[in-house]
Design a protein around this nucleic acid. Sequence first.
DNA 1: CTCCATTCCCGTACGCTGTACTGGAATGAG
DNA 2: CTCATTCCAGTACAGCGTACGGGAATGGAG
Lengths: 238, 238
Amino acid sequence: MTGDEGPGTAGVNPHRLWLGDPRPRRGRRPAYSREAITAAAVALADAEGLEAVTMRRVAARVGAGVMSLYSYAPDKETLLELMVDHVSGELSPPGPPTGDWRADLKAVAHLQRAHMLRHPWLPAALATHRTPGPRALAFLEHALAVLRPTGLDGGTKLEIFAQLTAFVTGHVAHEIARAPASRSSARAEAEARYLAAVAADGRHPELAEALASPGRPLTPEATFTRFLDRLVDGLDSH
Amino acid sequence: MTGDEGPGTAGVNPHRLWLGDPRPRRGRRPAYSREAITAAAVALADAEGLEAVTMRRVAARVGAGVMSLYSYAPDKETLLELMVDHVSGELSPPGPPTGDWRADLKAVAHLQRAHMLRHPWLPAALATHRTPGPRALAFLEHALAVLRPTGLDGGTKLEIFAQLTAFVTGHVAHEIARAPASRSSARAEAEARYLAAVAADGRHPELAEALASPGRPLTPEATFTRFLDRLVDGLDSH
DNA sequence: CTCCATTCCCGTACGCTGTACTGGAATGAG
DNA sequence: CTCATTCCAGTACAGCGTACGGGAATGGAG
């Protein structure tokens, strides 16, 4: 898994994608690399969002012709898959499990949250299911190690990880949507006015009261921690 | 909120969308309705998925010209918003809260899950944030009523509902991805073989063991209930 | 009734997308 | 050198969302 495989990976089977392909012995040498193309696509998504990732713009960033990309990934869907796995490399666990699996699992979730906040396009990209690449599998390996002390069977451990990831994804998607950067103040104001108007129409007494008693606002981080703790502390080992 | 508003709603402010617009007194009478167009789009999404919902195909289903749709919704993004709210109408609460708010809240989540399974495009459509329309607000009103016995402040109640929805959305997205209908057996087989190959490479001992001890497989419903119970039972009404 | 401002319908057109096709350039083996 | 192999990328096409604008319908005013 050097991440530097050249073309020739445009096979039908997407899973063959992750299994190394020995470089052919003859013919022209590749001018680019899957790694470089993926990195360019990630940079584009980080800077301008997922919808800015078009084959043309990625190619331009790499300095290649548009159609050349198709030698490195059979289609755009696969390029997205490569992007997800590429950034998964940043998810390096802080160290071996401590034995306190609840604390470790919470740390895993916090890592995932920070990771998704760093790449705000990730929740959307993960919305459609993708098979985990090598780097994502490395992180899964860590999560499973964390869960070892629970003594749970393999299916349950995998399920816990999937649920935890789904939870984090959902939370971060929501958090991003509420983030100031993604909301022009004009829009936020308009929405507030809309909700106030609905609350004032008399047919939504609960909403009116909820909006009237906001309580002290928590940071997204605090909210995340609170719900995460609930979820993890509720898991029992056996 | 009759859902039968005619054209003329193409204002800049999307929130004005939900506030009724009195029919103009002069001029040609609308030939279609926002409701009919939305229903056609929903039917299309139900039958062939979100990516089948194009302006052209929706127009064809309604029997209208493509550009006519833009008299009823300013753009496709708004049409999606209308679709989400349209199906939210199916989320009618089974009755007033019983007073057992934990049980009621779990029922709310189960309703949401069934709803999303009925419209598998919903998780993807909800991935980008949307402001709740009248039907979604009616359901929110119910959820807030359910939470009344907790005595929590409004902000927390809203947060709980958002988190619960995020949790359900994440779970269902995952569930749908794993569903047989969305996975050709060939693909599922290929993925299984890929994972087995990775597990056999010696560098993923935890994964290898997890795959070797699957445990008894649970239905998605059972898994959902288990995690939901953890989450809800962990909430305190302080 | 006629006249006309108003309102809506929708054909045409444009720029953008993902990608199939294909011919040409580079490479290493025999 | 010759040639099969491999990769690069220009051209082209169908399909997308939607801006524009002319024509058709409508109801109030005279």
